[in-house]
Amino acid sequence: MADKLGIMVSSDKHLDHVVGLTKAAINKGKEVHVFFTGVGVKLCPDPKAQELVKAGAKVSLCDKTYQGLGVNKEHGDKVEGMEHGSQDDNADIIEEVDRYVVF
């Protein structure tokens, strides 16, 4: 059975689903890579988003959007446990995973 799941988070409305799906997938032995982009980066400083890191997901975000939307001004330049990357990360996820979902 396929075992790598990619999750792109491009909206700021579904963090509960992202966390719920990620935890369930990891509990079933899947590798999960979450990438935050667009307005989705606003979710990164949310304490609930840290549950993704604690659950064992690899988590990255589009730093250009994070800075561009000014999220850094309120929450700092770096979100703990998350890789500040670029659209390259999303392209790598698309290449590596067996299934890909968007929230």
């Binding site: 491009s10 982009t37 667009g38 307005v39 959007t65 670029s86 659209q87 390259d88 999303n90 392209a91 790598d92 698309i94 290449e95």
Partner: peptide, 19 residues
């Protein structure tokens, strides 16, 4: 418009990595 632009930028990002 921001979401539209982000979608096109994300598409470009995949292209630059060979997709």
């Amino acid at each position: 418009g921001f979401v539209q632009e982000e979608a096109s930028r994300s598409a470009l990002g995949t292209m630059l990595k060979g997709h």
